[in-house]
Amino acid sequence: MAVAAEYEWSTRFQEENDRNEELSAHGKFFTCSYLLDMETKKILIRTHSGKIDTINVDPGPLDHYQFAIRASADTWRKFAMPTPPPMYHGIWAASFQGDMKLEGDLLVLMQNLRCLTAQLEILRVVGAPV
């Protein structure tokens, strides 16, 4: 993905996130950072009080995040379809039945599970960047 396309994707993700009604209503304490590892691309998302703080495409080796969600590019493409096929329709489904791995501080993931789930479903609107 070219730099311009990455910028466009990040901008769209942020816009969709920041106007998401569920996140606006329930995201007051949704503050965390996590890595989406998509095999051919890594994305570090930092959220503060439900709004996107930064989206870092291809972060550096020392960039910090609290947990990571890793899967193949193929899994993320299916995950990001408007209606994902069975077993690609969420991080639990893709972890139990597919190649997705949840790593790092999973307590932070669980503490933010409600809003994180809503945030990841934004991929169904903007698509996967891989």
Binding site: T83, P84, P86, H89, G90, I91, W92, A93, L113, T117, R124
Partner: peptide, 8 residues
């Protein structure tokens, strides 16, 4: 945690 158990 059970959200993904439902069809989207």
């Amino acid at each position: 945690g059970v959200w993904d158990l439902m069809a989207p």
